[in-house]
Write a protein that binds this DNA or RNA. Sequence first.
DNA 1: AACGCGTGTTTCGTGTTGCGGAATTTGATG
DNA 2: CATCAAATTCCGCAACACGAAACACGCGTT
Lengths: 256, 256
Amino acid sequence: MPKTTENPYVVQPVMKALKVLELVARHGHEIALTAVSKELRIPKTTTFRYLQTLSAAGFLDHNRTSDRYTLGPQMRSIARADASVSKIRTLARPAMTELMHEFNETVNLAVKGNGTIVYIDLIEANRSLRMQARIGDSHPMHSTALGKAILAFLPEAERQRQLDLPLTERTGRTLLEREEIERQLRQVARTGYATEMGENEDGAMCIGAPILDENGYPVAALSISAPLMRMPHSLAAKAGARLREIAAGISAHLGS
Amino acid sequence: MPKTTENPYVVQPVMKALKVLELVARHGHEIALTAVSKELRIPKTTTFRYLQTLSAAGFLDHNRTSDRYTLGPQMRSIARADASVSKIRTLARPAMTELMHEFNETVNLAVKGNGTIVYIDLIEANRSLRMQARIGDSHPMHSTALGKAILAFLPEAERQRQLDLPLTERTGRTLLEREEIERQLRQVARTGYATEMGENEDGAMCIGAPILDENGYPVAALSISAPLMRMPHSLAAKAGARLREIAAGISAHLGS
DNA sequence: AACGCGTGTTTCGTGTTGCGGAATTTGATG
DNA sequence: CATCAAATTCCGCAACACGAAACACGCGTT
């Protein structure tokens, strides 16, 4: 068998299944088992199993009436999510650098995950004591300025669903009462930015504003975070206004 | 093991590798081996192998300096191709039906593959004797009106590369001489549509016009095909003009 | 209806090869 | 240089993926 040039760690079933996935995807139209099998020179039985597996995982779609396979929803959903994230990231980058220089504090970018926010970019101020978050981290929505900014602009039904979930207590200051949270969210909706004071991490605060897609849906949020002692109220208000402005600019560019 | 409810045909290595792919893709940012392993409760060694395999296949990208994994080019390329194809298909559908009724002949839609054209949609006239093509079929560029329409609008360098490849002879009439082909392509570029007479299949002819993306690149082509005897010159000229017009309309919509 | 062809599906015995614990290397960090 | 966590490599075992062949099914054909 021609296994000469290869990385010894590739597991063949996976590799071959990926070839099947690629073939089906690139075919641009429904394709049948036998065609795949012939094209890739993989025995029918094996091809059958791969197609079943890929379909079960949602990467392919099995049309039962024509017994043919197409690209599945999983693939499209991943691609869409990725495109959206990378678009937001590239769009936000320059503004984030600018913000960081303006306030000399760490600037964070996060997208809405499922019940959480996920950091997708962050620019640290060199004078930061230690970083609060790392790219890729998930934090709860209700305990972060990023999350509160998103929550405040979510459609009513979805916001209620979020708040129905158990709320984890990150610090002694984390808001846990429904009443209080909703009161704050109404204020966030009015002012256009959210504030969080030691609710997510002791000694740290954060100010965030939402980034909205073309339909006004909050897909992401931008924030500035700093040690509590370094951010007096007056400065916080100024930062909030600036964040709101810049986030709005990014939102506007998202529809292009 | 919870293998109760499941399809007996799913092959686990593939399934688990797909879970890894999904996790990495949805993470929205570089992620390390250990994190994936912990999250999915798959032993490090195994996870490592999957990540290697997925990277080797181009579905993931392995950043060697940070030893982290991201979504790879393969994934993006497939998604892009799929989005483009389905956009063209939905955009073209209504016009194709209209054309079919207008001329009462089969209407074809194909995208540019690698050295070939691939049929992605087709609407048959009920009086058609037999169909020439099936969705998903690949045909050579130089022997079809669809291919010639695309070739004529390709950037010079890419067209030359195409024509340097060996040209297969589909019928006795298939054009094989470089000179003659290039002469025809110049004419296609002038008139805006291509004609083919029994060069791809005996007794059948075809008229095609290119669909251009926002950069003027020919990503697809639209055609009408008919038995040679049923399409006199005068009608062919009329069909060509109509195709050019309709294809131009679709091209215009592609940039939206 | 009976046939044959080309599909997709199922079965089953074999031995390949994927698995994962543990050992080793690498590379950041102080 | 020491330390630690993370990524690689090693290796023996048996799980389980493989694929030939048998089966089932839906067609078009005579």
